[in-house]
Design a protein around this nucleic acid. Sequence first.
DNA 1: TAAATAGGTTTACATTATAAACTATTTTAC
DNA 2: GTAAAATAGTTTATAATGTAAACCTATTTA
Lengths: 93, 93
Amino acid sequence: MFKPLDPLLHSQLRLAVMSLLLAVEEAEFTFLKEKTESTAGNLSVQLDKLEKAGYISIEKSFKGKRPLTTCKITQAGVKAFEDYVENLKNYIS
Amino acid sequence: MFKPLDPLLHSQLRLAVMSLLLAVEEAEFTFLKEKTESTAGNLSVQLDKLEKAGYISIEKSFKGKRPLTTCKITQAGVKAFEDYVENLKNYIS
DNA sequence: TAAATAGGTTTACATTATAAACTATTTTAC
DNA sequence: GTAAAATAGTTTATAATGTAAACCTATTTA
């Protein structure tokens, strides 16, 4: 009936990030920050957690002279998101 | 885009409780405990929070000689739940 | 060259979730 | 009758989480 909800996804900011990443090839840190209206500190921490869980991959490079952080959702991330949504339906329908 | 999710509802156990209460006239503590597979302590705390938020009402009485705690969802609770689900859709669709 | 901006990360704090321990009463077993 | 177990919860302590403030490094602007 009520299967446990993946605690990594059951978090407002991480869920928003995953939702955004599902829709695009990849996204920059600043893009995610703007879209989610989060602080950089909070976003940084949550991206770390998602990466450690294997739900996203993070690449650090440079855009001109400035650092650039780019995020991509992984296959495992897509699967986890889908499972989460499937489970969640039992709670909200 | 990503409206904040009511933190009182964005919690696995409280959401499960609200989901159950939406479907019935009223429910006993033990019923909620069994359905949610939670511990009594955790359930007790979460019911308190929902009551203090005005999302449920709690009545204490006796069933025979034993204490009986009965919960009902309030109008405000129904509204909050509906809003939560509506908001959540932006995250998971 | 001082101040502001960009792009983050680290750290500290406050809030939460959760289970363990506890209370009070009742039923069952001896 | 009384010791042990069960019922129905509440309170308390702890661990985990979420969040923003403070910080860092480099770059651009005044």
